[in-house]
Simulated assay, not measured.
Amino acid sequence: MAYDELDYQGMIFRPPSEADSILLQVTVGCSHNKCTFCEMYKAKRFSIKKDEVIMADIAKAAKLYKGFRRLFLCDGDALIIPQKRLIAILDEIKKKLPWLERIGTYANHKSISMKTPEELVELREHGLSIAYMGIESGDAVTLENIKKGATPERLIEMGKKIKASGIKLSVTVLNGIGGRERSMIHAKETGRVLSEMNPDFVGALSLMLTPGTSLYKDHMDGKFPVIDANEMLQELGVMFANTNLTGGLFHANHASNYLPIRAKLPDDKDRILRLINEALAGKVKLKPEYMRAL
């Protein structure tokens, strides 16, 4: 896609499942932007783009991307846009790109809390189909350490709020983010939180330290030892074993993962646990370090 045809400020990020989507930047940066492991939006000061810029981009997208069926609202947290403005954006998208089958956005606990249940239903009725929520961990200590700004209970509450509106919920968790000391606690508690939240999709990524982040500095200073591939896989196995979804999909097939996993729960649970155990026993090869990427 010739994304330079639209107005983009800085680097643009999207979930792996939005690889074939039109990327419409409606906000710049992340409204939280404090997580210790993330550098994606550090160079940006959060702002909401002017309506005239957004509407012009929608008109351009309608001409350029007729073959695309999905659209993703960038940057880090489009859901924080005031309700009337966000409804107007969704309506303009529907008017100019009526062939779209899905519209998605990132959402964090803060932006979800700022919408009433009725407002979330209204957003769904105006075309918002899926929200991506990065919880990273279900362990209270780990969440505090990485400056996520929320407790496990708060994350569960906000995830359920999205689900209740009829908007699909995709949750991202991060293997290795608890470090070696809290690895198993992080795994079990994350499984518990996912089970209570019961999202439609779970994406499990594996931690890759990024230069420039405070977590990277902690690692270089010897304060945060990174777990190795086998420890990462053990952690994933415990997390997966403790995750019980009613029909949701659990993916660990991101480029950062050592062992690609795609499972529908509860149907595939036993099969995936066997696969993980076989990998730990050396019967299944893991992805080599040089092939991993963010």
Rank of each mutant, 00 (worst) to 15 (best):
D4C: 10
L6C: 15
Y8L: 14
G10N: 11
M11D: 14
I12Q: 04
R14K: 04
E18D: 08
S21C: 08
I22G: 13
V26F: 01
V26K: 01
V28S: 00
C30V: 05
C30S: 02
N33I: 12
K34T: 05
C35S: 01
C35I: 03
E39A: 10
E39L: 09
R45L: 04
D51L: 07
D51C: 02
E52L: 08
I54K: 02
I54S: 03
K60N: 09
A62G: 07
A62E: 12
K63Y: 04
K63Q: 12
K63N: 13
L64M: 14
Y65D: 08
Y65L: 15
G67D: 12
F68D: 08
R69L: 04
F72T: 00
L73V: 05
D77M: 03
P82H: 02
Q83P: 01
R85Q: 06
L86K: 14
L90I: 10
D91V: 09
E92V: 11
K96M: 14
P98W: 06
I103H: 06
G104Q: 03
T105V: 01
S111E: 01
K115L: 03
K115M: 04
K115S: 05
K115C: 10
E119D: 13
E122L: 11
E122C: 10
L123P: 04
G127K: 13
I130N: 01
M133S: 14
I135K: 00
I135G: 01
E136G: 13
G138C: 11
A140D: 05
A150M: 05
A150K: 01
E153K: 10
E157Y: 03
M158D: 02
K161H: 15
K163F: 12
A164W: 11
G166P: 14
G166Q: 13
K168G: 04
L169S: 07
S170M: 02
V173N: 15
L174D: 11
N175M: 13
I177Q: 04
S183G: 09
S183Q: 11
M184C: 05
I185H: 05
H186F: 09
E189D: 08
E189L: 14
E189V: 02
T190A: 10
L194D: 05
L194P: 11
S195G: 15
E196P: 07
M197E: 06
N198Y: 07
D200S: 14
D200Y: 15
F201H: 07
V202P: 13
S206P: 14
L209N: 07
T210M: 11
P211G: 03
G212K: 12
S214C: 11
G222W: 03
F224T: 03
L233H: 15
V238L: 04
T243N: 06
N244P: 12
L245K: 05
G247A: 06
N253T: 13
P260L: 14
P260F: 08
R262Y: 12
A263Q: 02
A263H: 10
L265A: 05
D268S: 13
D268C: 12
R271L: 10
I276W: 02
E278H: 08
A281F: 02
V284G: 03
V284I: 06
K287T: 10
P288R: 09
A293R: 01
A293Y: 00
A293H: 02
